[in-house]
């Protein structure tokens, strides 16, 4: 039981650190990857809270589909930005 408590503390602290790093950073790719990391940690947190259904849903959606959607959204932005940088 105590090892679960230790795991709970580790997950909680890394969640807070990751959230701060995700929100504060200027680099958009880093923010997305950290959001994905937060989702994976949240899966562990849900599993620790004995919620397997929610953990499964979060594992599929939070770390797979949401990351994909963000990546595509930024991927469409990038080429035009590169052109702008080249013309400047």
């Amino acid at each position: 039981m105590s090892i679960l408590l230790v795991l709970e503390w580790i997950v909680g602290i890394v969640l807070i650190i990751g959230a701060v790093a995700c929100v504060v950073t200027e680099n958009i790719w880093a923010a997305i990857v950290r959001l994905s990391l937060l989702s994976m940690l949240a899966v562990v947190a849900f599993a620790l809270m004995r919620a397997p259904d929610v953990a499964l849903t979060e594992a599929v959606i939070g770390s797979g589909l949401v990351t994909f959607v963000f990546v595509v959204a930024i991927k469409k932005m990038l080429p035009k930005e590169n052109e702008n940088e080249e013309t400047r």
Partner: peptide, 9 residues
Amino acid sequence: PGGGFPGGS
């Protein structure tokens, strides 16, 4: 564990 929402996703 699971169901329609995670399975569909």
